Amino acid sequence: MPPSQRRRRPVDDEGDSEEDARPRQRQHIEASDAEQDEDMSDDDPEVTGASSTADNQMAKKLVRYAISCEYSRTAIRRDGIKERVLGKQGRSFRRIFELAQTQLRTVWGMELRELPVREKMTLHEKRQAMKSNAQPKTGSGAYILSSTLPEEYRSASILKPSKVPSAEQEATYSAFYTMVVSMIWLNGGELSEQKLQRYLMRLNADRMLASERTEVAMKRIERQGYVIKKVDRPPVGYEGDQTITWHVGPRAKEEIGLDGVIGLVREVYGHPEDEAFDKKLRSSLGIKNRPLTEGGEDYNDAGMTNGV
């Protein structure tokens, strides 16, 4: 072999060794990173413990947020939970939600229950829903707190009205929206503005409700989801007055339910044990073929009962 070739070989071998060393060095670094990732995996007790502690703190934050919303009768929305509680941990919603449910049930005697989806009421809304190809919503994404206490602990002597603004005002307001919701439900789930005003006039509550105007109280129970006000205006180019109807809101369906309406009616009429009375009450509520129950059960929209 010529000397020139023998002189070039060491140079080529040296170059090859440097190029071969770089991939091996990268492989060594990647292997070290992989080993470090394995050391920091969920199987590590320290990492698992820190994650569990963070989840518990976040669940407690969700409990505080839910209680503050319920105090003002504001719906607890999924978007609000992600924004005010989870922050950048939005993907952990289900895990934090279940932890908060456990804390609410074991410590507070409550649980978060999802509100029903708002129904299509007018003919226009129903037609729009039929034209749309979108899948119907399976959940509203809004929740309220509901008691999980046994029936014997739900008496008025134990669950007293809130003292803010005062116990008397809170009791009056609760009785008012329960009565309005009951009247709507007893009229087939829809009550005209004229009928509502006649009922309120008979109760001497058409203008004032305790120390506030009835109009203000109606706007508040509408805003809080107990009732839905539907205004139908005549088409453009046609003369006529607008029609106002009142419907049962999603919060009333979950908080009061048909069972609450039955309890109110029985209380007003002195708990009559009359078959004719029960028949009329079933007919008014649209549950003709189902027995009436008091306490411990609740009716859904189809007239079936759900355990509380």
Rank of each mutant, 00 (worst) to 15 (best):
39 D>M: 02
190 E>G: 01
242 Q>C: 04
69 C>Q: 10
14 E>R: 08
90 G>M: 09
230 K>G: 06
18 E>H: 04
43 D>M: 00
294 E>T: 15
288 K>S: 15
213 R>T: 07
46 E>R: 09
66 A>V: 04
105 R>H: 09
12 D>L: 12
101 Q>C: 08
226 Y>T: 01
196 L>I: 00
297 E>D: 12
287 I>G: 12
303 G>L: 06
271 H>M: 10
154 R>Y: 13
124 H>F: 02
110 M>N: 14
38 E>F: 00
138 T>P: 10
300 N>W: 06
192 S>E: 00
228 I>P: 03
97 F>Y: 15
69 C>N: 08
296 G>R: 14
62 L>K: 15
131 K>T: 03
235 P>F: 01
215 E>L: 00
152 E>L: 12
268 V>R: 10
159 L>E: 05
174 S>H: 10
189 G>A: 06
27 Q>T: 01
214 T>N: 08
84 R>F: 14
276 A>Q: 13
170 E>P: 00
76 I>Y: 12
115 L>D: 11
189 G>S: 07
164 V>E: 00
182 S>Y: 01
162 S>N: 03
221 I>W: 00
38 E>W: 05
276 A>H: 07
159 L>Y: 02
203 L>I: 00
102 T>I: 13
121 M>C: 08
71 Y>F: 03
288 K>V: 15
133 N>R: 10
250 P>M: 01
7 R>E: 13
123 L>A: 13
51 S>N: 09
73 R>N: 06
36 Q>R: 03
79 D>Q: 14
143 Y>M: 12
255 E>G: 04
116 P>D: 04
72 S>Y: 07
173 Y>S: 07
142 A>P: 14
144 I>D: 14
157 S>E: 05
21 A>H: 03
89 Q>N: 09
155 S>P: 02
95 R>W: 06
1 M>Q: 01
263 G>W: 12
275 E>I: 12
95 R>L: 10
227 V>M: 08
255 E>K: 07
104 L>F: 08
140 S>Y: 04
275 E>G: 06
199 Y>K: 00
49 G>Y: 02
3 P>T: 08
190 E>S: 03
220 R>T: 08
52 S>E: 11
43 D>K: 02
101 Q>M: 09
100 A>Q: 11
195 K>L: 04
235 P>S: 08
54 A>S: 13
249 G>E: 03
132 S>F: 04
171 A>E: 06
276 A>E: 11
190 E>N: 02
5 Q>L: 09
303 G>I: 08
148 T>C: 13
196 L>V: 03
147 S>A: 14
90 G>R: 09
234 P>L: 01
17 S>A: 07
52 S>L: 12
206 D>I: 01
109 G>V: 04
122 T>K: 04
265 V>K: 07
107 V>C: 09
46 E>M: 05
128 Q>W: 09
26 R>D: 04
278 D>P: 10
258 L>Q: 12
49 G>L: 02
174 S>E: 08
